[in-house]
Design a protein around this nucleic acid. Structure first.
Lengths: 179, 179
DNA sequence: CGATAGTTTCAGAAATAACCGAAATACTCT
DNA sequence: AGAGTATTTCGGTTATTTCTGAAACTATCG
Protein backbone atom coordinates (compact mmCIF):
# COMPACT_ATOMS: atom_id res chain seq x y z
CA UNK A 1 0.00 0.00 0.00
CA UNK A 2 1.36 3.39 -1.01
CA UNK A 3 1.98 6.06 1.56
CA UNK A 4 -0.41 8.43 -0.24
CA UNK A 5 -3.27 6.44 1.28
CA UNK A 6 -2.53 7.79 4.74
CA UNK A 7 -4.35 11.10 5.23
CA UNK A 8 -1.40 12.88 6.81
CA UNK A 9 0.94 11.74 4.06
CA UNK A 10 -1.51 12.83 1.38
CA UNK A 11 -1.93 16.23 2.99
CA UNK A 12 1.81 16.64 3.10
CA UNK A 13 2.02 15.82 -0.61
CA UNK A 14 -0.75 18.22 -1.56
CA UNK A 15 0.60 21.03 0.60
CA UNK A 16 4.09 20.51 -0.72
CA UNK A 17 2.74 20.64 -4.24
CA UNK A 18 0.93 23.85 -3.50
CA UNK A 19 4.02 25.46 -2.05
CA UNK A 20 6.03 24.27 -5.04
CA UNK A 21 3.98 26.57 -7.26
CA UNK A 22 5.16 29.53 -5.18
CA UNK A 23 8.79 28.47 -5.48
CA UNK A 24 10.52 27.61 -8.71
CA UNK A 25 8.77 24.30 -9.33
CA UNK A 26 5.32 23.43 -10.61
CA UNK A 27 2.74 21.45 -8.70
CA UNK A 28 3.45 18.08 -10.30
CA UNK A 29 7.18 18.28 -9.70
CA UNK A 30 6.70 19.14 -6.05
CA UNK A 31 4.09 16.43 -5.54
CA UNK A 32 6.24 13.75 -7.08
CA UNK A 33 9.07 14.88 -4.88
CA UNK A 34 6.94 14.77 -1.74
CA UNK A 35 5.67 11.30 -2.58
CA UNK A 36 9.16 9.93 -3.11
CA UNK A 37 10.39 11.66 0.01
CA UNK A 38 7.79 9.84 2.09
CA UNK A 39 8.15 6.52 0.33
CA UNK A 40 10.33 3.90 1.93
CA UNK A 41 10.80 1.87 -1.22
CA UNK A 42 11.75 3.00 -4.71
CA UNK A 43 8.74 3.71 -6.92
CA UNK A 44 8.39 3.22 -10.66
CA UNK A 45 6.81 5.90 -12.83
CA UNK A 46 3.58 3.98 -13.24
CA UNK A 47 3.11 3.74 -9.48
CA UNK A 48 3.62 7.49 -9.19
CA UNK A 49 0.96 8.12 -11.84
CA UNK A 50 -1.45 5.95 -9.92
CA UNK A 51 -0.71 7.53 -6.58
CA UNK A 52 -0.99 11.14 -7.72
CA UNK A 53 -3.35 10.75 -10.69
CA UNK A 54 -1.03 12.43 -13.15
CA UNK A 55 -0.36 11.61 -16.78
CA UNK A 56 2.55 9.34 -17.45
CA UNK A 57 4.33 11.99 -19.51
CA UNK A 58 3.92 14.57 -16.80
CA UNK A 59 5.54 12.25 -14.30
CA UNK A 60 8.37 11.63 -16.73
CA UNK A 61 9.03 15.37 -17.01
CA UNK A 62 8.82 15.84 -13.25
CA UNK A 63 11.30 13.04 -12.60
CA UNK A 64 13.70 14.53 -15.09
CA UNK A 65 13.45 17.89 -13.40
CA UNK A 66 14.00 16.40 -9.94
CA UNK A 67 17.02 14.51 -11.17
CA UNK A 68 18.29 17.80 -12.61
CA UNK A 69 18.11 19.25 -9.13
CA UNK A 70 19.99 16.24 -7.85
CA UNK A 71 17.39 15.32 -5.25
CA UNK A 72 15.99 12.20 -6.92
CA UNK A 73 17.91 9.35 -8.50
CA UNK A 74 17.18 6.20 -10.48
CA UNK A 75 17.69 2.80 -8.97
CA UNK A 76 17.03 -0.71 -10.11
CA UNK A 77 14.90 -3.20 -8.36
CA UNK A 78 15.92 -6.87 -8.70
CA UNK A 79 13.70 -8.74 -11.10
CA UNK A 80 11.99 -5.63 -12.44
CA UNK A 81 12.79 -4.12 -15.76
CA UNK A 82 11.33 -0.72 -15.02
CA UNK A 83 13.27 2.26 -13.68
CA UNK A 84 12.58 3.02 -10.07
CA UNK A 85 13.16 6.30 -8.27
CA UNK A 86 14.16 7.37 -4.80
CA UNK A 87 14.42 10.81 -3.23
CA UNK A 88 17.29 12.13 -1.19
CA UNK A 89 16.16 11.90 2.43
CA UNK A 90 19.15 13.57 4.03
CA UNK A 91 17.65 17.02 4.40
CA UNK A 92 20.94 18.79 4.56
CA UNK A 93 22.01 17.23 1.26
CA UNK A 94 18.67 18.07 -0.26
CA UNK A 95 18.86 21.67 0.84
CA UNK A 96 22.37 22.08 -0.53
CA UNK A 97 21.44 20.52 -3.86
CA UNK A 98 18.43 22.79 -4.30
CA UNK A 99 20.27 25.98 -3.38
CA UNK A 100 23.12 25.12 -5.72
CA UNK A 101 20.79 24.54 -8.64
CA UNK A 102 18.71 27.62 -7.96
CA UNK A 103 21.84 29.74 -7.75
CA UNK A 104 22.92 28.39 -11.12
CA UNK A 105 19.57 29.07 -12.73
CA UNK A 106 18.50 32.30 -11.09
CA UNK A 107 21.51 34.14 -9.71
CA UNK A 108 24.34 33.42 -12.13
CA UNK A 109 22.49 34.88 -15.14
CA UNK A 110 21.88 38.09 -13.19
CA UNK A 111 25.54 38.37 -12.28
CA UNK A 112 26.51 37.85 -15.90
CA UNK A 113 24.10 40.51 -17.11
CA UNK A 114 25.22 43.00 -14.48
CA UNK A 115 28.85 42.42 -15.37
CA UNK A 116 28.06 43.03 -19.01
CA UNK A 117 26.19 46.24 -18.26
CA UNK A 118 28.98 47.42 -16.01
CA UNK A 119 31.46 47.04 -18.81
CA UNK A 120 29.28 48.85 -21.31
CA UNK A 121 28.53 51.64 -18.86
CA UNK A 122 32.21 52.31 -18.32
CA UNK A 123 32.47 53.31 -21.96
CA UNK A 124 29.31 55.40 -21.95
CA UNK A 125 30.18 58.92 -20.88
CA UNK A 126 26.77 60.55 -20.84
CA UNK A 127 25.15 58.03 -18.55
CA UNK A 128 24.23 59.66 -15.23
CA UNK A 129 26.62 58.69 -12.46
CA UNK A 130 23.90 57.44 -10.15
CA UNK A 131 22.72 54.85 -12.69
CA UNK A 132 26.23 53.51 -12.95
CA UNK A 133 26.48 53.47 -9.17
CA UNK A 134 23.21 51.69 -8.60
CA UNK A 135 23.79 48.97 -11.16
CA UNK A 136 27.40 48.61 -10.06
CA UNK A 137 26.31 48.49 -6.43
CA UNK A 138 23.88 45.70 -7.17
CA UNK A 139 26.61 43.75 -8.91
CA UNK A 140 28.97 44.14 -5.98
CA UNK A 141 26.31 43.21 -3.50
CA UNK A 142 25.27 40.01 -5.26
CA UNK A 143 28.91 39.10 -5.74
CA UNK A 144 29.54 39.50 -2.03
CA UNK A 145 26.63 37.24 -1.18
CA UNK A 146 27.56 34.54 -3.66
CA UNK A 147 31.22 34.59 -2.71
CA UNK A 148 30.20 34.06 0.89
CA UNK A 149 27.84 31.29 -0.17
CA UNK A 150 30.56 29.62 -2.22
CA UNK A 151 32.91 29.57 0.74
CA UNK A 152 30.43 28.41 3.31
CA UNK A 153 29.01 25.63 1.21
CA UNK A 154 32.46 24.11 1.09
CA UNK A 155 32.53 23.57 4.85
CA UNK A 156 31.90 20.18 6.39
CA UNK A 157 28.32 19.44 7.25
CA UNK A 158 29.25 19.01 10.91
CA UNK A 159 30.93 22.41 10.98
CA UNK A 160 27.92 24.05 9.41
CA UNK A 161 25.60 22.48 11.93
CA UNK A 162 27.82 23.70 14.78
CA UNK A 163 27.74 27.19 13.30
CA UNK A 164 23.98 27.13 13.03
CA UNK A 165 23.66 25.97 16.63
CA UNK A 166 25.88 28.86 17.64
CA UNK A 167 23.36 31.19 16.04
CA UNK A 168 23.83 34.84 16.94
CA UNK A 169 26.68 33.90 19.26
CA UNK A 170 29.11 33.86 16.34
CA UNK A 171 29.08 37.63 16.69
CA UNK A 172 31.31 37.18 19.75
CA UNK A 173 34.21 36.53 17.44
CA UNK A 174 33.74 39.79 15.59
CA UNK A 175 35.40 42.89 17.09
CA UNK A 176 32.59 45.17 18.19
CA UNK A 177 29.95 42.64 17.31
CA UNK A 178 28.60 41.94 20.77
CA UNK A 179 24.96 42.30 19.81
CA UNK B 1 14.38 62.62 -18.87
CA UNK B 2 13.64 59.27 -17.31
CA UNK B 3 16.40 56.78 -16.75
CA UNK B 4 14.58 54.19 -18.87
CA UNK B 5 15.80 56.08 -21.92
CA UNK B 6 19.37 54.97 -21.36
CA UNK B 7 19.92 51.60 -23.04
CA UNK B 8 21.80 50.09 -20.11
CA UNK B 9 19.15 51.20 -17.65
CA UNK B 10 16.38 49.83 -19.83
CA UNK B 11 18.16 46.52 -20.18
CA UNK B 12 18.54 46.33 -16.45
CA UNK B 13 14.82 46.93 -16.02
CA UNK B 14 13.84 44.32 -18.60
CA UNK B 15 16.24 41.73 -17.25
CA UNK B 16 15.12 42.37 -13.69
CA UNK B 17 11.53 41.97 -14.80
CA UNK B 18 12.33 38.70 -16.49
CA UNK B 19 14.06 37.36 -13.42
CA UNK B 20 11.15 38.49 -11.30
CA UNK B 21 8.95 35.95 -13.05
CA UNK B 22 11.28 33.18 -11.82
CA UNK B 23 11.13 34.48 -8.27
CA UNK B 24 7.98 35.24 -6.37
CA UNK B 25 7.07 38.41 -8.25
CA UNK B 26 5.50 39.02 -11.64
CA UNK B 27 7.12 40.93 -14.45
CA UNK B 28 5.37 44.24 -13.82
CA UNK B 29 6.23 44.29 -10.13
CA UNK B 30 9.87 43.59 -10.82
CA UNK B 31 10.06 46.18 -13.61
CA UNK B 32 8.51 48.90 -11.48
CA UNK B 33 10.96 48.05 -8.76
CA UNK B 34 13.93 48.20 -11.10
CA UNK B 35 12.82 51.54 -12.50
CA UNK B 36 12.43 53.08 -9.06
CA UNK B 37 15.73 51.59 -7.95
CA UNK B 38 17.51 53.36 -10.78
CA UNK B 39 15.62 56.60 -10.47
CA UNK B 40 17.20 59.42 -8.55
CA UNK B 41 13.98 61.32 -7.98
CA UNK B 42 10.63 60.05 -6.74
CA UNK B 43 8.27 59.05 -9.53
CA UNK B 44 4.50 59.30 -9.65
CA UNK B 45 2.39 56.43 -10.94
CA UNK B 46 1.65 58.14 -14.23
CA UNK B 47 5.34 58.56 -14.96
CA UNK B 48 5.89 54.86 -14.29
CA UNK B 49 3.10 53.94 -16.71
CA UNK B 50 4.73 56.07 -19.37
CA UNK B 51 8.20 54.75 -18.77
CA UNK B 52 7.26 51.08 -18.78
CA UNK B 53 4.14 51.14 -20.95
CA UNK B 54 1.94 49.47 -18.37
CA UNK B 55 -1.70 50.12 -17.49
CA UNK B 56 -2.34 52.52 -14.67
CA UNK B 57 -4.09 49.87 -12.62
CA UNK B 58 -1.28 47.41 -13.08
CA UNK B 59 1.19 49.97 -11.77
CA UNK B 60 -1.07 50.64 -8.81
CA UNK B 61 -1.10 46.94 -7.92
CA UNK B 62 2.65 46.64 -8.38
CA UNK B 63 3.31 49.61 -6.10
CA UNK B 64 1.08 48.15 -3.43
CA UNK B 65 2.93 44.83 -3.64
CA UNK B 66 6.32 46.54 -3.41
CA UNK B 67 5.18 48.53 -0.41
CA UNK B 68 4.01 45.27 1.14
CA UNK B 69 7.55 43.98 0.79
CA UNK B 70 8.78 47.15 2.39
CA UNK B 71 11.15 48.05 -0.43
CA UNK B 72 9.21 50.99 -1.87
CA UNK B 73 7.61 53.85 -0.01
CA UNK B 74 5.43 56.84 -0.77
CA UNK B 75 6.78 60.35 -0.53
CA UNK B 76 5.40 63.75 -1.31
CA UNK B 77 6.88 66.21 -3.69
CA UNK B 78 6.41 69.88 -2.87
CA UNK B 79 3.78 71.51 -5.01
CA UNK B 80 2.48 68.24 -6.44
CA UNK B 81 -0.70 66.64 -5.31
CA UNK B 82 0.11 63.18 -6.64
CA UNK B 83 1.74 60.41 -4.66
CA UNK B 84 5.33 59.79 -5.53
CA UNK B 85 7.35 56.66 -4.91
CA UNK B 86 10.94 55.83 -4.09
CA UNK B 87 12.72 52.49 -3.76
CA UNK B 88 15.01 51.45 -0.98
CA UNK B 89 18.53 51.80 -2.37
CA UNK B 90 20.40 50.40 0.59
CA UNK B 91 20.89 46.89 -0.75
CA UNK B 92 21.36 45.31 2.60
CA UNK B 93 18.05 46.75 3.82
CA UNK B 94 16.37 45.65 0.65
CA UNK B 95 17.69 42.12 0.95
CA UNK B 96 16.58 41.85 4.57
CA UNK B 97 13.12 43.17 3.79
CA UNK B 98 12.61 40.71 0.94
CA UNK B 99 13.83 37.68 2.87
CA UNK B 100 11.63 38.59 5.84
CA UNK B 101 8.54 38.88 3.68
CA UNK B 102 9.26 35.72 1.73
CA UNK B 103 9.79 33.80 4.93
CA UNK B 104 6.44 35.03 6.17
CA UNK B 105 4.64 34.08 2.97
CA UNK B 106 6.39 30.89 1.97
CA UNK B 107 8.06 29.30 4.97
CA UNK B 108 5.78 30.05 7.91
CA UNK B 109 2.74 28.34 6.37
CA UNK B 110 4.82 25.21 5.76
CA UNK B 111 5.98 25.16 9.38
CA UNK B 112 2.41 25.56 10.57
CA UNK B 113 1.19 22.72 8.37
CA UNK B 114 4.02 20.42 9.44
CA UNK B 115 3.35 21.16 13.09
CA UNK B 116 -0.30 20.32 12.59
CA UNK B 117 0.50 17.05 10.84
CA UNK B 118 3.01 16.14 13.53
CA UNK B 119 0.35 16.51 16.17
CA UNK B 120 -2.18 14.45 14.28
CA UNK B 121 0.38 11.76 13.50
CA UNK B 122 1.19 11.33 17.16
CA UNK B 123 -2.37 10.16 17.73
CA UNK B 124 -2.43 7.88 14.69
CA UNK B 125 -1.10 4.49 15.67
CA UNK B 126 -1.22 2.65 12.36
CA UNK B 127 0.82 5.22 10.44
CA UNK B 128 4.15 3.69 9.38
CA UNK B 129 7.01 4.95 11.53
CA UNK B 130 9.07 6.16 8.59
CA UNK B 131 6.30 8.55 7.46
CA UNK B 132 6.20 10.08 10.91
CA UNK B 133 9.98 10.33 10.90
CA UNK B 134 10.23 11.95 7.50
CA UNK B 135 7.57 14.57 8.11
CA UNK B 136 8.90 15.19 11.61
CA UNK B 137 12.42 15.43 10.27
CA UNK B 138 11.37 18.04 7.74
CA UNK B 139 9.72 20.05 10.46
CA UNK B 140 12.81 19.95 12.66
CA UNK B 141 15.06 20.87 9.78
CA UNK B 142 13.06 23.90 8.71
CA UNK B 143 12.77 24.99 12.31
CA UNK B 144 16.53 24.81 12.71
CA UNK B 145 17.06 26.96 9.64
CA UNK B 146 14.51 29.57 10.58
CA UNK B 147 15.69 29.77 14.17
CA UNK B 148 19.18 30.45 12.89
CA UNK B 149 17.82 33.01 10.47
CA UNK B 150 15.87 34.73 13.22
CA UNK B 151 18.97 35.07 15.36
CA UNK B 152 21.30 36.22 12.65
CA UNK B 153 18.96 38.81 11.21
CA UNK B 154 18.98 40.52 14.59
CA UNK B 155 22.69 41.25 14.36
CA UNK B 156 23.97 44.68 13.46
CA UNK B 157 24.54 45.27 9.78
CA UNK B 158 28.23 45.94 10.41
CA UNK B 159 28.61 42.66 12.27
CA UNK B 160 26.93 40.76 9.48
CA UNK B 161 29.20 42.33 6.91
CA UNK B 162 32.24 41.40 8.97
CA UNK B 163 30.99 37.83 9.20
CA UNK B 164 30.46 37.66 5.47
CA UNK B 165 33.94 39.00 4.83
CA UNK B 166 35.27 36.31 7.12
CA UNK B 167 33.64 33.72 4.88
CA UNK B 168 34.79 30.17 5.46
CA UNK B 169 37.25 31.41 8.07
CA UNK B 170 34.50 31.44 10.71
CA UNK B 171 35.06 27.69 10.85
CA UNK B 172 38.25 28.42 12.82
CA UNK B 173 36.15 29.14 15.85
CA UNK B 174 34.44 25.77 15.71
CA UNK B 175 36.21 22.85 17.43
CA UNK B 176 37.23 20.46 14.68
CA UNK B 177 36.03 22.82 11.96
CA UNK B 178 39.36 23.64 10.35
CA UNK B 179 38.23 23.05 6.78
C1' DC C 1 15.45 -10.07 -35.67
C1' DG C 2 10.79 -9.21 -34.30
C1' DA C 3 7.85 -8.59 -30.34
C1' DT C 4 6.96 -6.49 -26.22
C1' DA C 5 7.60 -3.38 -22.34
C1' DG C 6 9.33 1.04 -20.97
C1' DT C 7 10.34 5.89 -21.70
C1' DT C 8 10.41 10.42 -23.84
C1' DT C 9 8.85 13.98 -27.03
C1' DC C 10 5.58 17.04 -28.77
C1' DA C 11 1.41 19.51 -30.30
C1' DG C 12 -2.68 20.94 -28.61
C1' DA C 13 -6.05 21.45 -24.54
C1' DA C 14 -6.84 23.01 -20.00
C1' DA C 15 -5.75 25.70 -16.11
C1' DT C 16 -3.64 29.57 -14.08
C1' DA C 17 -1.80 34.04 -13.67
C1' DA C 18 -1.09 38.57 -15.46
C1' DC C 19 -2.89 42.61 -17.40
C1' DC C 20 -6.06 46.08 -19.12
C1' DG C 21 -9.81 49.60 -19.12
C1' DA C 22 -13.91 51.17 -17.19
C1' DA C 23 -16.27 52.32 -13.22
C1' DA C 24 -16.24 53.38 -8.40
C1' DT C 25 -14.06 55.52 -4.66
C1' DA C 26 -11.20 58.82 -2.22
C1' DC C 27 -8.95 62.95 -1.79
C1' DT C 28 -7.97 68.17 -2.20
C1' DC C 29 -8.79 72.65 -3.06
C1' DT C 30 -11.70 76.59 -3.54
C1' DA D 1 -20.30 71.34 -0.56
C1' DG D 2 -18.92 70.15 -5.15
C1' DA D 3 -15.71 70.32 -9.05
C1' DG D 4 -11.76 68.45 -10.43
C1' DT D 5 -8.01 65.25 -9.92
C1' DA D 6 -5.78 61.06 -8.13
C1' DT D 7 -6.16 56.25 -6.87
C1' DT D 8 -8.05 51.65 -6.35
C1' DT D 9 -11.15 47.89 -7.37
C1' DC D 10 -13.03 44.62 -10.33
C1' DG D 11 -14.88 41.94 -14.41
C1' DG D 12 -13.30 40.42 -18.56
C1' DT D 13 -9.41 39.45 -21.88
C1' DT D 14 -4.98 38.05 -23.08
C1' DA D 15 -0.73 35.72 -22.23
C1' DT D 16 1.76 32.11 -20.08
C1' DT D 17 2.43 27.88 -18.04
C1' DT D 18 1.12 23.29 -17.06
C1' DC D 19 -0.75 19.00 -18.28
C1' DT D 20 -2.45 15.48 -21.31
C1' DG D 21 -2.64 11.73 -24.82
C1' DA D 22 -0.89 10.03 -28.91
C1' DA D 23 3.05 8.97 -31.41
C1' DA D 24 7.97 8.21 -31.69
C1' DC D 25 11.74 6.30 -29.83
C1' DT D 26 14.71 2.98 -27.03
C1' DA D 27 15.95 -1.07 -24.82
C1' DT D 28 15.40 -5.90 -23.51
C1' DC D 29 14.08 -10.57 -24.09
C1' DG D 30 12.93 -14.77 -26.55
Amino acid sequence: MGVEKYPEALEFILHWGEMGTHWGANRSVAQVHALLYLSKKPLDAEAICGALDLARSNVSTALKELQGYGIVRRTHVAGDRRDHFVAETELWEMFMAITAERKKREIDPVIAKLAELKERMAANKDLPAHVRDRIGGMHDFINTLTTWYGQVRGLKKSTLISLMKLGAKVARFIPGGKD
